[in-house]
């Protein structure tokens, strides 16, 4: 029996119900013939191993860490490694639906926890201002002290036309920014292919994408089989990049409406 991370029960067979969506837009309209070309996706995570065969074009990035003396996050631009494998996994998954997108590696997780939320916030802000149209966040903070800060950055992203795709927590407790209404929040469904998108009629986890028993890229050019909402979010980030490469004029609320309409459980309203 496969594990189900928190919130993923909503997408289990027999539980997910239909969602009614405006007619005229479907998965073919959104995704057919597109590759993600021309769209940058920032991966705010543990770094990306650009040499992994599953990882496409890493176009740049930045690594953030905590300076305890200055009491703030500091930035080191340029290439860096992935110490854990998780960021590389996310990057490889994004490339499944958007093989020609550009990837920006924003490393916010290293070997220390102190200042973690501030480092995460600094990395996210950099990503929002980087020119990327999509930001994948397979991590978030459960610390309510940072609710306001992350909300401010999520609002900046929304108005700047940057879609934040956030994995919801793997255990039943709120995290930020995955809980905000402006982001595209994602939990794992049982799907296997990159286009297996579901829409949850009872949020906060709004979308379901493959994240259970997924074969994912890992360290040393290898793969592992893993389960987590972490691996569902980059599937959706890849779909958003693919969508924006075909329809670049869409804004974050448009993107969310199209994702709903392109979901497997969407039923178009009649004209």
């Amino acid at each position: 029996m496969s594990l189900r991370p928190a919130w993923s029960d909503a997408f289990a067979a027999g539980i997910l119900t239909e969602v009614r969506v405006p007619g005229g837009i479907d998965a073919a309209w959104a995704f057919d013939g597109a590759t993600g070309a021309g769209v940058d996706v920032a991966v705010v995570d543990s770094g990306i191993d650009a040499t992994h065969p599953a990882v496409g074009n890493v176009a740049g990035g930045a690594a953030f860490s905590w300076d305890p003396d200055a009491g703030r996050a500091i930035l080191a631009e340029g290439p860096h490694e992935d110490l854990f494998g998780h960021g590389t996994a996310c990057a490889g998954i994004i490339c499944r639906a958007a093989p020609e997108c550009g990837l920006l590696s924003v490393r916010v997780l290293g070997a220390r926890l102190s200042g973690k939320a501030q480092v995460f916030a600094a990395g996210l802000r950099w990503a929002v201002q980087s020119g990327a149209r999509v930001v994948n966040l397979s991590l978030s903070t459960s610390n309510p002290d940072f609710y306001g800060l992350f909300h401010e950055i999520a609002d900046e992203a929304y108005f700047a036309g940057v879609t934040l795709v956030c994995a919801v927590n793997n255990v039943p407790a709120p995290t930020y920014p995955s809980q905000y209404a402006s982001v595209v929040s994602v939990a794992a469904n049982d799907g296997t292919d990159a286009f297996a998108l579901d829409c949850n009629p009872t949020p906060p986890a709004e979308f379901g994408a493959p994240g259970i028993d997924q074969e994912i890229p890992w360290l040393d050019s290898g793969t592992i089989v893993a389960t987590g909402n972490s691996f569902a979010a980059p599937h959706v980030a890849g779909l958003v990049a693919r969508l924006l490469s075909k329809h670049p004029e869409l804004t974050p609320p448009d993107v969310k409406a199209v994702l709903r309409a392109a979901s497997r459980n969407a039923v178009p309203l009649r004209a």
Partner: peptide, 16 residues
């Protein structure tokens, strides 16, 4: 470091 649980099967594929 992330505060997130993770489940991994087929660990023997991870040589390190």
């Amino acid at each position: 470091m992330s505060g997130q649980p993770v489940a991994i099967d087929d660990l023997r594929r991870d040589p390190r």
